[in-house]
């Protein structure tokens, strides 16, 4: 009490107290009402979009951010500066402070014209919502537009698909069937083969009366001997095959240089 009253009677102390209070108040307000820079969400470094297209994408992104607190970022560059598309995309997301909430929920779509790479980086909630199966769905839809140079169509389809995924956050079986038909087929084929082998093994146990094909039990111990034994090297032959170009990589969860983990995937177009 004594200390507080001393502070209050001291004019300088009083002013400092109020200033500090206001600063804290404004931080709290900022956290509640996240203010963000919509212009930073579409960075067209490679100049693939005209001004009208860029503002169209921005307003689509704006709607998603307002509705779901989920960040969507589109980046085009002419050079990755020596980084891999995956690392570039993850770093761009992390170091520009994208993503909402504690887990930085969001998704970033990177297009690099240097080697015609595309990459999608997911973060926070985005890692669960847009899983590998959905990444490959996006890929199937979007990459052909990229290849044809229809960048605006590619990005707008990407944003619309991201929107619909956020609305049904749990990947359903239908998604799996569309995107992960191969993985489900592998699961069931494997189950079929294991089940078949198991029951065939069980039925084989019913009949133990089988002819013996060998006479090893009756070989006189120590009587097996080799009089000649020769291993001759004849020739050698080396083949050389060009390494296949990596089409798609960077799936699964990985940790970027900032220490945050990302999902996603990418490839060439």
């Amino acid at each position: 009490m004594v200390r507080l009253s001393r502070l209050c009677y001291n004019g300088v102390g009083m002013r400092r107290f109020i200033l500090t209070f206001l600063a804290v108040l404004s931080m709290v307000c900022q956290a509640a009402y996240t203010s963000y820079d919509i212009n930073a969400r579409v960075y067209d470094g490679a100049g693939l979009l005209d001004a009208g297209q860029a503002s169209g994408l921005k307003s689509m992104i704006n709607n998603i951010i307002d509705a779901y607190d989920f960040d969507v970022v589109i980046v085009t560059v002419n050079s990755l500066g020596g980084k891999s598309p995956e690392i570039f995309a993850d770093d761009y997301f992390d170091y520009n402070g994208f993503g909402f909430g504690d887990n930085r929920d969001g998704i970033l779509f990177l297009v690099s014209m240097e080697n015609r790479d595309w990459h999608i980086s997911t973060s926070g909630r985005g890692m669960q919502i847009i899983n590998d199966a959905r990444i490959s769905e996006i890929k199937n839809k979007v990459v052909s537009y990229l290849s044809n140079g229809e960048y605006y169509e590619a990005f707008s389809h990407f944003i619309r698909m991201a929107d619909s995924y956020i609305q049904s956050p749990r990947p359903t079986n239908i998604d799996l069937q569309k995107g992960g038909i191969s993985s489900l087929a592998i699961v069931w084929v494997t189950a079929f083969v294991i089940a078949l082998i198991s029951v065939l093994f069980m039925s084989a146990q019913l009949k133990t009366a089988r002819p013996q094909s060998m006479a090893n039990d009756y070989a006189v111990r120590g009587s097996f001997h080799l009089t000649h034994r020769r291993d001759m090297f004849i020739n050698t032959h080396t083949t050389r095959m060009p390494r296949p170009k990596e089409d798609s990589g960077g799936g699964g969860v990985h940790t970027g240089s900032s220490g945050r983990s990302h999902g996603g995937g990418g490839g060439k177009f």
Partner: peptide
């Protein structure tokens, strides 16, 4: 290496001669 996958196959010719005795099959 960075550009190619290599496969080197060595071919051999082997010869074995010998015997073994079996009793009371």
């Amino acid at each position: 290496d960075a550009y190619y996958n290599y496969a080197k196959t060595d071919y051999y010719r082997l010869y074995r001669e010998g015997g073994v005795n079996f009793e009371r099959i």
